[in-house]
Simulated assay, not measured.
Amino acid sequence: MLKVTENDRLIPLVRKGSRPSYVLLPGAGGGLAYYLRMAGFLGKTGNVYGIRAAGLVAGEEPENRLSDMADSALRTLDDAGIEPSLIVGWSMGGVIGWEVCQRLAERGVQPALVLLDTSPFPFVGDAEFTDWLLGKIGGQLGPSPDEESAARLKGVLLGQLSALAENNVDRPYAGRVLLVTCAEPADAREQNLAAWRKLAPDLREHTVDVDHYSVAKPENFLALSDPLASFLAH
């Protein structure tokens, strides 16, 4: 039975009886709104859950290490009694998903994993980029967010960027992996592909003609539906 506490980070998106469990992990900002169309698609065959980032709710502290993010995501699943058969992560969420899968593999469980334009390499952004990204993600809070919500979102984002600066995926994962990459920039795409091919022996690849910040948007989901359906079917 699913156990969800009042302040749990686990968000049930689609749940209908006893079916495979699919888990969605967000990118920068830690929200799940852009996953709703994907959740509806995945919900045709499984129960779908999202795990929001720590720190978005009053009383929570944001995390600033990828290992801590993976550990807390796995604890959230364990507390709810969920053993996922599929994990989907966009950008940083894919790195967290990779780490969660590593921990599950140590238990003898190998979920299928979908990486949406995820890099295995460190990322360091300057202050100008941080301000730009905060403005872009801040739109999730609506046109006039309250100061406390905006401050919590900023704290989460700063912790995430700190974590990404130390990102270095170097442990292989033997489970099934679908890597969706964006067409541009081509040099970064090829670099990421080369690294993931070494790390994931059972890798499928698909490229979409949208940019990194648009790949998870609901209006672009049609570009993901066919590769996702094919991946789920095999």
Rank of each mutant, 00 (worst) to 15 (best):
H212I: 00
G155R: 06
A229K: 14
L141Q: 08
L133R: 13
D71N: 13
K3P: 13
R15F: 13
V109Y: 03
I87D: 01
R197C: 04
D211A: 06
Y213I: 11
G155S: 07
D68Q: 14
L141F: 08
Q160N: 03
L13Q: 09
L66H: 07
D209Y: 03
S214M: 11
E184T: 12
L179S: 13
K154F: 06
W132H: 10
P218M: 04
G155E: 02
I87Q: 00
F123E: 12
D202H: 10
L224I: 09
A188Y: 13
A28F: 08
T130L: 14
G17W: 07
G31V: 11
I137H: 04
G139M: 15
K44Y: 03
P84M: 04
R52H: 04
M92D: 01
A223N: 10
E61Q: 15
R189L: 13
D202K: 06
E61T: 15
S225C: 12
N168P: 04
E166R: 14
A58P: 12
V124P: 00
V57Y: 12
E166G: 09
P120D: 02
P201C: 03
S214Q: 14
T76C: 08
Q191K: 14
W90H: 15
P145M: 04
A105E: 13
A195R: 13
R189S: 12
A183F: 09
T5G: 15
L116N: 07
E60D: 05
